[in-house]
Amino acid sequence: MRYEEWSGIARKASKRSLWMVHFCTGCGAIEMPPVMTSRYDMERFGIASMATPRQADVLLITGYLTVKTLKRVVQVYEQMQSPKYVIALGSCTMNGGMYWDSYNTIKRLDKYIPVDIYVAGCMPRPEGIMNAFLKLMKLIDEGKARGWERYKKYYERYKKNQEMAFNFVKKEEKEEEKNEGD
């Protein structure tokens, strides 16, 4: 068999067996139980939740991220084994949502880690989340879910963005300390 055929089979397998680690920040965690339990039952598509990032394929970000949480998210993402995918839920991950003018949340997740699918809503309903998974399966099958390759290719730029966000917080903290000292 040729290489393309093999990778086709691998894609077919990974599409039907998405193991996810859900990084439950923000308000989104409450939408996950109905997706997992008997009402929507995502296990019928082979989706299961895993305990550690090493075992997982999909990273699910369920809401706003403060800069401190972003640090952990990046660590989790880098621990996952490629091919890996990211699904971001809620308007907070797209443009800041109702935290658009907050001083300590990030506005666009896509600047820091490559997101494959966004789900709109505040909060998206379980149907929306299921839909996102089905869409992701389709993208994997067509070979279009290439977020992890993008991360490798533009690693420097992603790192620069992350550093900028982290440094911003450091600067603020320093200023606060100085103010307290005065």
Partner: peptide
Amino acid sequence: RVGPPFYQGFIDVAKLLSK
């Protein structure tokens, strides 16, 4: 629940070995 198909074990192993 409905549950995964009965051949899910094979799919999972195939996916993991093709990482």
